[in-house]
């Protein structure tokens, strides 16, 4: 293989890459509950690993019950650098018919920071909006 292409210095590994490059996704797994119990955003997400990959299941705030978004695969899982084997971030895509939600999450200091880029498709006149929420891991899954 020739020299690695790069868009910035950090694309280049400091040392030979471990083989095989298999990410440990355990830091992402579990049930994550919004730190703001009265928030109007996403109340809870469950990230799980199955035979064919990792999944996220999101629950929006709602009354009287949470709104189930369903389970979607994590599109991409990210490490902290090109030579790392520990997962720390992910993205996922929800098509909820009336809106698209691109989720971008990362773990930091024991919290899951979840940003959502929300695009409406229903002609309702609502603004596409950005949200960023924090989640703590529920110990008993």
């Amino acid at each position: 293989m020739g020299p690695l292409k790069s868009s910035r210095t950090e694309d280049c590994p400091d040392s030979p890459l471990p083989q095989p490059a298999q990410l440990d996704i355990r830091p992402l797994l579990g049930t994550w509950v919004n730190t703001n119990a009265s928030g109007w955003g996403i109340a809870k997400v469950i990230i799980s690993e199955e035979k064919n990959g990792a999944y996220i299941e999101a629950f929006g705030s709602g009354s009287p019950a949470l709104i189930e978004w369903g389970k979607r695969p994590l599109s991409t899982i990210y490490a902290k650098d090109v030579g790392s084997s520990t997962a720390m971030a992910f993205d996922a895509q929800y098509d909820l018919e009336f809106m698209d939600v691109r989720m971008e999450g990362n773990c930091n200091l024991g919290l899951l920071v979840l940003a959502c880029l929300n695009v409406f498709k229903d002609g309702s006149g609502r603004s596409n909006y950005f949200s960023r929420e924090f989640f703590g891991r529920k110990e008993t899954v």
Binding site: P13, T76, Y78, V82, G83, S84
Partner: peptide, 15 residues
């Protein structure tokens, strides 16, 4: 959120 497509073995990474 950075994802490699070149099969170089580099881990996708976040910064």
């Amino acid at each position: 959120f950075n994802r490699f497509k070149d099969q170089s073995g580099r881990a996708n990474y976040f910064s």
